[in-house]
């Protein structure tokens, strides 16, 4: 089996994951739909990046595209995704198979249906380990138990031969995490890993991810619509709207002073213990239909700061500070207005 280091383009010095101008377009009956439209970001070793957005904002599609999990066609993918310098967009299948699992792994929202119902969990966890290292089933089983213990599944040595339907949703999510960790990947992409779980279990799973990323020097890309999760977990935050990045920056900075009106609206719709007498903000209107994006800024129809200039062109992401960028034409006006109001 090929190692990641042997793949063409491998470069130790390159960033762990560098996504540049990634676009994902789908053919639909109503024309082409840009589910992801020019998204760029980088992930460094051990870092946690949160991608925040409503459903349909392209956050999942962009991550699926990174691992080549969208079938082409119907998806048309352009741009560049480099893992340690290895180009993954339109890469040969063999490269993708090598990188998946051992370089970048991914876990999904609905853990129960994301596990194969007819295979034992131990087998599913150790499957790629056995295939890549040529180990036999017995050592695969041992390795699976080890991994199950690492993700804190009680009584792992007995439960390794159980089937997914015998586990709860939270346990299934742990199994999926164990499975994703089998080849010691450098990045784990988690697509809303806790959305389908009970609140108490959500916290446990999040804590597990956090400790894994700390102890194993594992970079996390966390897709979520929950700003609370982002605030707690992330080093960096990227906010997406209608397939585009609208704001990105270090977590503290973004939460302290959101530039984009969408981020502001999201934050004001979050309950907050310090001002619990205020009414929660709502974002008027509904998420845009991707086939019928409004002219200019996609958020314009719902934006309280919208001005005629917003119709003219689609705002680009522009840098507005150290590792900080946002895509609003009126950033300066908004802040002027806000400060004059105070």
């Amino acid at each position: 089996m090929i190692n990641i280091n042997d793949l063409p383009g491998y470069d130790d010095a390159a960033p762990l994951l560098a996504v540049d101008n990634l676009c994902v377009t789908f053919e639909s009956f109503e024309g082409e739909v840009a589910a992801v439209d020019g998204v760029s970001f980088t992930v460094n070793p051990g870092e946690t990046l949160c991608i925040v957005g409503e459903s349909g904002s392209g956050k999942s599609a962009s991550q699926m595209a990174i691992l080549g999990l969208l079938s082409t066609p119907p998806a048309i993918i352009s741009g560049s995704v480099r893992f340690c310098g290895i180009e993954l967009v339109h890469a040969p299948q063999s490269t993708l198979f090598t990188v998946r699992g051992s370089g970048v792994s991914m876990i999904f929202q609905d853990a129960i249906t994301s596990l194969n119902p007819s295979l034992k969990v131990g087998f599913q966890i150790a499957e790629v380990f056995c295939a890549r290292t040529g180990s036999d089933r017995a050592s695969g089983r041992k390795y699976a138990i080890e991994l199950m213990e690492r993700v804190a599944i009680p009584d792992a040595s007995h439960r390794v031969d159980d089937y997914p339907f015998q586990f709860s949703g939270g346990m299934c999510q742990r199994i999926m995490i164990a499975m994703a960790l089998a080849l010691n990947p450098k990045i784990l992409i988690a697509d809303e890993p806790t959305t389908a779980l009970d609140v108490t279990v959500q916290r446990q799973v999040m804590e597990l991810l956090k400790s894994l990323s700390k102890n194993a020097d594992l970079a996390l890309v966390l897709i979520t619509h929950d700003l609370g999760v982002a605030a707690e977990q992330a080093d960096k935050v990227m906010v997406m709207y209608a397939g585009r990045t609208v704001e990105t920056g270090l977590t503290d900075a973004v939460f302290a002073k959101p530039y984009h009106p969408y981020t502001q609206a999201l934050l004001s719709s979050m309950p907050d213990v310090t001002n619990n007498f205020n009414r929660l903000g709502i974002i008027s209107g509904s998420p845009p239909v991707l086939t019928k994006l409004p002219e200019g800024c996609s958020f314009r129809p719902r934006c309280q700061f919208a001005a005629p200039m917003c119709r003219l062109n689609r705002p680009q992401l522009f840098v507005s500070g150290p590792s900080r960028a946002s895509a609003c034409l009126r950033v300066n006006d908004i802040f002027k207005k806000k400060s004059s109001n105070v």
């Binding site: 109503e30 008027s284 209107g285 509904s286 845009p288 239909v289 086939t291 019928k292 409004p294 002219e295 129809p301 719902r302 119709r311």
Partner: peptide, 17 residues
């Protein structure tokens, strides 16, 4: 064409389908 000056409303979506 749908008038883009107005915000998209749920009825626009339904019409398109």
């Amino acid at each position: 064409m749908v008038d883009l000056s107005k915000p998209l409303s749920p009825t626009d979506v339904d019409e398109s389908r």
